[in-house]
């Protein structure tokens, strides 16, 4: 596991990717920091980190790092070496994930200096500043985990990068889409009917079992219909709630403003664990295809 991790980290710095990631992330954060915290005379780094501008650039940079992580191993058949060596798939995925996190840690450690730099100009809320950096780190951990899952699902780097970016930007947009989403029970009801059908379709895509997928779809649709008939108030605004759950960024609002929140930590760690488990399962499944 350590060998794969070391190779992974090293490979970022053999190619341009590692340098490009660190440089661009620092450039963007540094730019916002200098305009908001230094020129704008604000003592709190959270205001810089919560700029949508920073988030979007970050969302572009993550796929650049994660696109090749597992996809390229599959394409160049080096996965054959990894999967026939005495290392479990879970360890391989973890090694890859920690490799990406190590790269991510470099700009983050650097950013930790920023609040200290501000102290020479006046009082700085240091604990709040570091809580907001921690929030940004948690968000990044979730982003990289999503990148790993997507990379595990394909052998094409471009597809891997584009899909990762699409997922991240969609999740990011949820907080804005919520405002234009109707909160009526009927709307949610229809959305859930569509979602249930989608789940059945995805299941069919993986399992290729028409009968099982059909039964799953029917059961889910029935549950939705029954729930609606029994208690339609349950559906009011439900789709908006669901959208906020899927929005990775909305969970770090408190964090980025300097308020430590255990819920958010649990949320991000759950996203990470869920993504890595799915990635391991996808690689396991490849053995059986």
């Amino acid at each position: 596991m350590l060998a794969i991790y070391k190779r992974e980290v090293k490979s970022y710095f053999i190619s341009m990717i590692g340098y490009a990631f660190v440089a661009f992330l620092l450039l963007v954060i540094g730019f916002v920091y200098s305009s908001i915290n230094i020129n704008g005379k604000s003592p709190f780094i959270g205001y810089a980190l919560q700029q949508a501008y920073v988030s979007v650039v970050f969302m572009l940079l993550v796929p650049v790092v994660t696109m090749r992580v597992l996809a390229d191993e599959h394409r160049t058949k080096t996965d054959q070496l990894l999967f026939t060596s005495p290392v479990s798939i879970t360890k391989i995925v973890l090694a890859k994930y920690f490799g990406t996190l190590t790269l991510f840690a470099i700009p983050m450690v650097w950013i930790c200096i920023y609040p200290i730099m501000l102290t020479s100009f006046g009082t700085v809320p240091l604990p709040m500043s570091y809580v907001s950096i921690l929030g940004f780190v948690l968000l990044g951990m979730a982003y990289f985990a999503i990148g790993i899952v997507v990379s595990a699902s394909t052998e094409n780097q471009i597809i891997s990068a584009v899909v990762t970016f699409a997922v991240l930007i969609l999740s990011f947009s949820m907080q804005y889409l919520v405002d234009i989403t109707p909160t009526t029970a009927v709307f949610s009801f229809i959305c859930f009917l569509v979602l249930a059908a989608l789940v059945a379709l995805i299941y069919y895509g993986f399992a290729k079992n028409l009968i099982a997928a059909g039964i799953l779809g029917l059961v889910l649709e029935a549950v939705v219909v029954i729930l609606y008939l029994v208690k339609s108030s349950l559906f009011e605004g439900l789709i908006a709630k669901l959208m906020l759950v899927l929005c990775l960024n909305s969970h770090y609002d408190n964090f980025i403003n300097g308020y430590f929140e255990v819920d958010a930590i649990l949320y991000y760690l759950s996203v990470v664990v869920l993504c890595l488990v799915i990635a391991v399962q996808m690689l396991q499944k490849r053995k059986w295809d």
Binding site: S11, S15, T78, Q80
Partner: peptide, 9 residues
């Protein structure tokens, strides 16, 4: 394997 699994970098 059939195609040697080499890390070319």
């Amino acid at each position: 394997p059939e195609f040697p699994p080499l890390y070319t970098d």
